[in-house]
Amino acid sequence: MKIKKERKRKYISHSALFSYQEASDKIIIYAIKTGDSYSDRITKMDVELSALLNLPLEEKIDRPAVCEYHYFLKRPKRLNVISNTLAEVNESLNINLGYGVIYEPVKTPHILIAGGTGSGKSIFISYLLLEFLKQNSSVYIIDPKNSDLGSLSHYIGEERVATTANNIARVVRLAVTEMKERYDYMNKNFKYGSNFSDHGYKPIWVIFDEMGAFQASGTDKQSKAVVGEVMDGIKQIILLGRQAGVFILIAAQQMRSEILSTDLRDNLGLRISLGSNSAEGYRMVFGSATPETIPPIEVKGSGLLYMQGSGKESAQYWESPFVDMQNFDFITELKKYC
Protein backbone atom coordinates (compact mmCIF):
# COMPACT_ATOMS: atom_id res chain seq x y z
CA MET A 1 0.00 0.00 0.00
CA LYS A 2 1.45 3.32 -1.11
CA ILE A 3 1.12 6.27 1.16
CA LYS A 4 0.76 9.55 -0.70
CA LYS A 5 2.83 12.35 0.69
CA GLU A 6 0.80 15.46 1.22
CA ARG A 7 2.28 18.45 -0.53
CA LYS A 8 3.04 21.39 1.66
CA ARG A 9 1.16 24.48 0.68
CA LYS A 10 2.57 27.94 1.12
CA TYR A 11 0.33 30.69 2.30
CA ILE A 12 1.00 34.41 2.02
CA SER A 13 0.22 35.69 5.48
CA HIS A 14 1.21 39.30 4.81
CA SER A 15 2.70 41.40 2.02
CA ALA A 16 3.55 44.95 1.08
CA LEU A 17 0.59 46.99 -0.11
CA PHE A 18 0.80 49.45 -3.01
CA SER A 19 -1.65 51.53 -4.98
CA TYR A 20 -1.16 54.14 -7.65
CA GLN A 21 -2.72 57.21 -9.21
CA GLU A 22 -2.04 58.27 -12.78
CA ALA A 23 -2.50 61.77 -14.21
CA SER A 24 -1.66 63.21 -17.62
CA ASP A 25 1.87 64.19 -16.63
CA LYS A 26 2.77 62.04 -13.62
CA ILE A 27 2.20 58.80 -11.79
CA ILE A 28 2.12 58.50 -8.00
CA ILE A 29 2.90 55.20 -6.30
CA TYR A 30 1.49 54.87 -2.78
CA ALA A 31 3.34 52.48 -0.49
CA ILE A 32 0.86 51.80 2.32
CA LYS A 33 2.24 51.27 5.82
CA THR A 34 0.52 48.64 7.94
CA GLY A 35 2.94 48.43 10.85
CA ASP A 36 4.42 45.11 9.73
CA SER A 37 7.98 44.21 8.74
CA TYR A 38 7.51 45.75 5.30
CA SER A 39 6.63 49.23 6.54
CA ASP A 40 10.24 50.34 6.85
CA ARG A 41 11.41 48.68 3.63
CA ILE A 42 8.75 50.26 1.41
CA THR A 43 10.02 53.74 2.29
CA LYS A 44 13.41 52.96 0.73
CA MET A 45 12.41 51.78 -2.72
CA ASP A 46 13.47 54.83 -4.75
CA VAL A 47 15.88 52.91 -6.99
CA GLU A 48 13.71 49.80 -7.40
CA LEU A 49 10.58 51.73 -8.43
CA SER A 50 12.54 54.01 -10.76
CA ALA A 51 13.96 50.93 -12.46
CA LEU A 52 10.54 49.28 -12.65
CA LEU A 53 8.90 52.32 -14.23
CA ASN A 54 12.00 53.49 -16.11
CA LEU A 55 11.25 57.00 -14.84
CA PRO A 56 13.25 59.43 -12.68
CA LEU A 57 11.90 60.13 -9.21
CA GLU A 58 10.43 63.63 -8.95
CA GLU A 59 9.57 63.63 -5.25
CA LYS A 60 9.19 61.28 -2.31
CA ILE A 61 6.86 62.20 0.55
CA ASP A 62 7.06 59.99 3.62
CA ARG A 63 3.83 60.38 5.60
CA PRO A 64 2.85 58.51 8.81
CA ALA A 65 0.53 56.08 7.03
CA VAL A 66 1.84 56.11 3.46
CA CYS A 67 4.97 56.84 1.47
CA GLU A 68 4.33 58.60 -1.84
CA TYR A 69 6.64 58.24 -4.85
CA HIS A 70 6.01 60.86 -7.55
CA TYR A 71 7.27 60.22 -11.09
CA PHE A 72 7.02 62.47 -14.15
CA LEU A 73 5.54 60.73 -17.17
CA LYS A 74 6.54 63.73 -19.24
CA ARG A 75 9.31 66.13 -18.26
CA PRO A 76 8.44 69.85 -18.07
CA LYS A 77 9.92 72.01 -20.80
CA ARG A 78 12.90 74.25 -20.21
CA LEU A 79 12.20 77.88 -21.05
CA ASN A 80 14.17 79.08 -24.07
CA VAL A 81 14.94 82.81 -23.85
CA ILE A 82 14.98 84.64 -27.18
CA SER A 83 15.50 88.27 -28.12
CA ASN A 84 12.54 90.37 -29.20
CA THR A 85 12.69 93.45 -31.38
CA LEU A 86 10.60 95.55 -29.02
CA ALA A 87 10.63 95.81 -25.25
CA GLU A 88 8.19 93.48 -23.51
CA VAL A 89 5.90 94.53 -20.70
CA ASN A 90 4.75 92.16 -17.99
CA GLU A 91 1.67 93.62 -16.32
CA SER A 92 1.52 90.62 -14.00
CA LEU A 93 3.46 90.40 -10.75
CA ASN A 94 4.40 86.81 -11.59
CA ILE A 95 7.56 85.56 -13.32
CA ASN A 96 7.83 82.49 -15.53
CA LEU A 97 10.89 80.47 -14.50
CA GLY A 98 10.23 77.69 -16.99
CA TYR A 99 10.19 73.98 -16.29
CA GLY A 100 6.62 74.30 -15.01
CA VAL A 101 7.42 76.91 -12.34
CA ILE A 102 5.65 80.27 -12.05
CA TYR A 103 7.09 82.45 -9.31
CA GLU A 104 4.72 84.75 -7.39
CA PRO A 105 6.74 87.18 -5.22
CA VAL A 106 3.64 88.45 -3.42
CA LYS A 107 2.90 84.94 -2.12
CA THR A 108 6.49 83.75 -1.69
CA PRO A 109 8.68 86.83 -1.30
CA HIS A 110 12.46 86.96 -1.76
CA ILE A 111 14.90 84.70 -3.59
CA LEU A 112 18.00 82.78 -2.56
CA ILE A 113 20.37 81.48 -5.26
CA ALA A 114 23.42 79.37 -4.52
CA GLY A 115 25.83 78.13 -7.14
CA GLY A 116 29.53 77.92 -7.81
CA THR A 117 31.58 78.83 -10.85
CA GLY A 118 30.12 77.42 -14.05
CA SER A 119 26.74 76.59 -12.49
CA GLY A 120 24.81 79.15 -14.56
CA LYS A 121 24.10 81.42 -11.57
CA SER A 122 25.18 84.66 -13.28
CA ILE A 123 23.14 83.96 -16.41
CA PHE A 124 20.06 83.17 -14.33
CA ILE A 125 20.44 86.38 -12.30
CA SER A 126 20.75 88.32 -15.58
CA TYR A 127 17.51 86.70 -16.77
CA LEU A 128 15.74 87.68 -13.54
CA LEU A 129 17.02 91.25 -13.81
CA LEU A 130 15.40 91.58 -17.23
CA GLU A 131 12.18 90.08 -15.89
CA PHE A 132 12.12 92.59 -13.03
CA LEU A 133 12.57 95.47 -15.47
CA LYS A 134 9.78 94.14 -17.70
CA GLN A 135 7.49 94.66 -14.71
CA ASN A 136 8.71 98.26 -14.42
CA SER A 137 10.33 97.41 -11.09
CA SER A 138 12.90 99.63 -9.43
CA VAL A 139 16.13 97.65 -9.16
CA TYR A 140 19.12 98.10 -6.86
CA ILE A 141 22.25 96.04 -7.54
CA ILE A 142 24.91 95.17 -4.95
CA ASP A 143 28.07 93.56 -6.28
CA PRO A 144 30.94 93.64 -3.75
CA LYS A 145 33.26 91.81 -6.16
CA ASN A 146 32.64 94.51 -8.79
CA SER A 147 32.17 91.93 -11.54
CA ASP A 148 29.59 91.85 -14.34
CA LEU A 149 26.67 93.17 -12.29
CA GLY A 150 28.78 96.05 -10.98
CA SER A 151 29.45 97.23 -14.52
CA LEU A 152 25.72 97.72 -15.10
CA SER A 153 25.95 101.12 -13.40
CA HIS A 154 26.58 102.49 -16.93
CA TYR A 155 23.00 101.55 -17.84
CA ILE A 156 20.98 101.40 -14.62
CA GLY A 157 22.65 104.40 -13.00
CA GLU A 158 25.45 104.77 -10.47
CA GLU A 159 23.00 105.67 -7.71
CA ARG A 160 21.38 102.21 -8.04
CA VAL A 161 24.51 100.06 -8.33
CA ALA A 162 26.94 99.63 -5.44
CA THR A 163 30.29 97.85 -5.27
CA THR A 164 32.02 99.44 -2.25
CA ALA A 165 31.03 98.96 1.39
CA ASN A 166 29.82 102.53 1.95
CA ASN A 167 27.84 102.57 -1.28
CA ILE A 168 26.31 99.21 -0.41
CA ALA A 169 25.17 100.65 2.91
CA ARG A 170 23.74 103.67 1.06
CA VAL A 171 21.78 101.52 -1.40
CA VAL A 172 20.32 99.31 1.35
CA ARG A 173 19.42 102.45 3.30
CA LEU A 174 17.57 103.79 0.25
CA ALA A 175 15.59 100.57 -0.16
CA VAL A 176 14.65 100.47 3.54
CA THR A 177 13.61 104.13 3.46
CA GLU A 178 11.38 103.53 0.43
CA MET A 179 9.84 100.55 2.21
CA LYS A 180 9.02 102.62 5.29
CA GLU A 181 7.61 105.47 3.19
CA ARG A 182 5.32 103.00 1.44
CA TYR A 183 4.08 101.65 4.76
CA ASP A 184 3.41 105.21 5.97
CA TYR A 185 1.36 105.94 2.86
CA MET A 186 -0.54 102.64 2.98
CA ASN A 187 -1.36 103.13 6.65
CA LYS A 188 -2.72 106.63 5.94
CA ASN A 189 -4.75 105.25 3.03
CA PHE A 190 -5.68 101.97 4.65
CA LYS A 191 -7.41 99.28 2.60
CA TYR A 192 -8.08 96.01 4.35
CA GLY A 193 -6.22 93.11 2.74
CA SER A 194 -4.39 95.35 0.28
CA ASN A 195 -0.73 95.33 -0.69
CA PHE A 196 1.60 97.65 -2.57
CA SER A 197 0.07 97.06 -6.01
CA ASP A 198 -3.38 98.12 -4.77
CA HIS A 199 -1.85 101.52 -3.98
CA GLY A 200 -0.23 101.94 -7.38
CA TYR A 201 3.29 100.90 -6.39
CA LYS A 202 5.58 98.77 -8.53
CA PRO A 203 7.98 96.19 -7.04
CA ILE A 204 11.40 97.16 -5.74
CA TRP A 205 14.12 94.52 -6.07
CA VAL A 206 17.48 94.49 -4.32
CA ILE A 207 19.89 92.11 -6.04
CA PHE A 208 22.71 91.24 -3.62
CA ASP A 209 25.35 89.12 -5.33
CA GLU A 210 28.16 87.41 -3.39
CA MET A 211 26.91 88.33 0.07
CA GLY A 212 29.66 86.21 1.60
CA ALA A 213 32.35 88.35 -0.06
CA PHE A 214 30.77 91.48 1.38
CA GLN A 215 30.66 90.10 4.92
CA ALA A 216 34.30 89.04 4.63
CA SER A 217 35.18 92.70 4.03
CA GLY A 218 34.42 93.50 7.68
CA THR A 219 37.98 93.31 8.97
CA ASP A 220 38.16 96.24 11.39
CA LYS A 221 35.86 98.11 13.72
CA GLN A 222 34.67 100.62 11.13
CA SER A 223 34.07 98.12 8.32
CA LYS A 224 32.36 95.71 10.71
CA ALA A 225 29.98 98.51 11.69
CA VAL A 226 29.10 99.03 8.01
CA VAL A 227 28.53 95.30 7.53
CA GLY A 228 26.32 95.28 10.62
CA GLU A 229 24.24 98.19 9.33
CA VAL A 230 23.77 96.54 5.94
CA MET A 231 22.77 93.19 7.43
CA ASP A 232 20.28 94.92 9.71
CA GLY A 233 18.72 96.56 6.65
CA ILE A 234 18.61 93.24 4.81
CA LYS A 235 16.86 91.68 7.79
CA GLN A 236 14.21 94.43 7.74
CA ILE A 237 13.57 93.88 4.04
CA ILE A 238 13.28 90.10 4.45
CA LEU A 239 10.87 90.33 7.37
CA LEU A 240 8.82 93.39 6.37
CA GLY A 241 9.20 93.90 2.64
CA ARG A 242 6.46 91.70 1.18
CA GLN A 243 3.41 93.90 1.72
CA ALA A 244 5.28 97.03 0.67
CA GLY A 245 6.58 95.30 -2.46
CA VAL A 246 10.25 95.48 -1.51
CA PHE A 247 11.96 92.19 -2.31
CA ILE A 248 15.51 90.90 -2.17
CA LEU A 249 17.48 88.40 -4.21
CA ILE A 250 20.50 87.03 -2.33
CA ALA A 251 23.17 85.08 -4.22
CA ALA A 252 26.25 83.33 -2.92
CA GLN A 253 28.49 80.44 -3.88
CA GLN A 254 27.84 78.74 -0.54
CA MET A 255 25.02 79.83 1.74
CA ARG A 256 26.62 79.22 5.12
CA SER A 257 24.79 80.08 8.32
CA GLU A 258 27.45 82.72 9.06
CA ILE A 259 26.35 84.53 5.90
CA LEU A 260 22.63 84.32 6.57
CA SER A 261 21.03 82.82 9.66
CA THR A 262 18.75 79.84 9.17
CA ASP A 263 15.80 81.87 10.51
CA LEU A 264 16.25 84.50 7.79
CA ARG A 265 16.98 81.84 5.17
CA ASP A 266 13.65 80.17 5.89
CA ASN A 267 11.92 83.50 5.17
CA LEU A 268 13.19 83.44 1.59
CA GLY A 269 10.25 82.01 -0.35
CA LEU A 270 12.13 80.81 -3.42
CA ARG A 271 15.39 78.91 -2.88
CA ILE A 272 17.54 77.56 -5.69
CA SER A 273 20.81 75.64 -5.77
CA LEU A 274 22.38 75.53 -9.23
CA GLY A 275 24.94 72.92 -10.20
CA SER A 276 26.06 69.98 -8.09
CA ASN A 277 26.48 70.51 -4.37
CA SER A 278 27.44 68.54 -1.30
CA ALA A 279 24.85 67.14 1.08
CA GLU A 280 25.81 69.84 3.56
CA GLY A 281 25.62 72.50 0.84
CA TYR A 282 22.05 71.48 0.02
CA ARG A 283 21.09 71.57 3.69
CA MET A 284 22.47 75.10 3.99
CA VAL A 285 20.14 76.19 1.17
CA PHE A 286 17.02 74.12 1.80
CA GLY A 287 17.16 73.10 5.46
CA SER A 288 14.33 70.68 6.21
CA ALA A 289 13.24 70.86 2.54
CA THR A 290 16.39 69.03 1.41
CA PRO A 291 15.29 65.89 -0.51
CA GLU A 292 16.42 62.48 0.70
CA THR A 293 17.55 61.50 -2.78
CA ILE A 294 19.46 64.03 -4.90
CA PRO A 295 18.84 63.56 -8.65
CA PRO A 296 21.77 63.79 -11.09
CA ILE A 297 22.65 67.41 -11.91
CA GLU A 298 24.25 67.15 -15.33
CA VAL A 299 22.76 69.93 -17.48
CA LYS A 300 24.38 73.37 -17.11
CA GLY A 301 21.89 75.68 -15.47
CA SER A 302 20.06 72.84 -13.74
CA GLY A 303 19.79 72.24 -10.02
CA LEU A 304 17.23 72.01 -7.24
CA LEU A 305 14.40 74.45 -6.56
CA TYR A 306 12.14 74.85 -3.55
CA MET A 307 9.23 77.28 -3.49
CA GLN A 308 7.15 77.74 -0.35
CA GLY A 309 3.44 77.19 -0.84
CA SER A 310 3.91 75.16 -4.01
CA GLY A 311 2.60 71.97 -2.40
CA LYS A 312 6.03 70.36 -2.64
CA GLU A 313 7.57 69.26 0.63
CA SER A 314 11.14 69.19 -0.61
CA ALA A 315 13.30 70.77 -3.31
CA GLN A 316 12.77 69.46 -6.86
CA TYR A 317 14.96 69.04 -9.90
CA TRP A 318 14.68 72.10 -12.14
CA GLU A 319 16.34 73.62 -15.19
CA SER A 320 16.77 77.39 -15.34
CA PRO A 321 15.77 79.33 -18.49
CA PHE A 322 18.19 78.63 -21.32
CA VAL A 323 19.99 81.69 -22.67
CA ASP A 324 22.19 81.17 -25.73
CA MET A 325 24.82 83.82 -24.97
CA GLN A 326 26.25 83.44 -28.49
CA ASN A 327 23.04 84.77 -30.00
CA PHE A 328 21.52 86.73 -27.10
CA ASP A 329 22.96 90.18 -26.44
CA PHE A 330 22.17 90.90 -22.80
CA ILE A 331 23.27 94.55 -22.90
CA THR A 332 21.14 95.25 -25.97
CA GLU A 333 18.16 93.72 -24.16
CA LEU A 334 18.93 95.69 -21.00
CA LYS A 335 19.01 99.01 -22.86
CA LYS A 336 15.39 98.47 -23.93
CA TYR A 337 14.30 98.86 -20.31
CA CYS A 338 16.72 101.47 -18.97
Rank of each mutant, 00 (worst) to 15 (best):
M1I: 10
K4Q: 12
K5D: 11
K8P: 09
R9Q: 14
K10T: 13
H14M: 06
S15G: 11
S19P: 00
Q21E: 14
E22T: 11
K26G: 05
A31T: 08
T34A: 13
Y38P: 06
S39N: 10
T43L: 02
K44C: 06
D46G: 00
V47F: 05
E48F: 03
E58G: 00
D62A: 11
P64K: 10
C67S: 13
F72W: 12
K74H: 03
K74A: 00
R78M: 05
I82S: 11
S83N: 03
T85V: 02
E88F: 01
N90R: 11
I95W: 00
E104K: 15
V106I: 14
T108Y: 10
A114S: 15
A114V: 12
G116L: 01
T117K: 04
G118F: 00
F124W: 02
S126F: 05
L133I: 03
Y140M: 12
N146L: 09
S147C: 08
E158Y: 13
R160K: 14
A162K: 08
A165M: 15
N166W: 10
R170E: 12
L174R: 15
A175Y: 08
T177R: 14
R182Q: 09
M186C: 05
K188G: 07
K191D: 00
S194W: 01
S194T: 02
F196Y: 12
I204K: 04
I204H: 01
I204L: 03
I207M: 05
I207N: 02
G212D: 10
A213M: 09
A216S: 14
T219K: 14
T219D: 11
Q222A: 13
A225W: 03
V226E: 07
E229R: 14
K235R: 15
I248N: 06
Q254K: 13
Q254R: 15
M255E: 05
S257N: 15
S257R: 15
L260E: 11
S261P: 10
S261Y: 02
T262H: 08
N267C: 07
R271M: 05
R271G: 06
G275D: 02
S276E: 12
S278M: 09
R283M: 04
S288Y: 06
P291A: 01
I297L: 08
I297H: 07
S302H: 08
Y306L: 07
Q308C: 06
G309I: 00
G311Y: 01
Q316P: 12
Q316S: 15
Y317V: 06
P321W: 03
F322K: 13
V323I: 15
N327Y: 07
L334Q: 07
K335A: 08
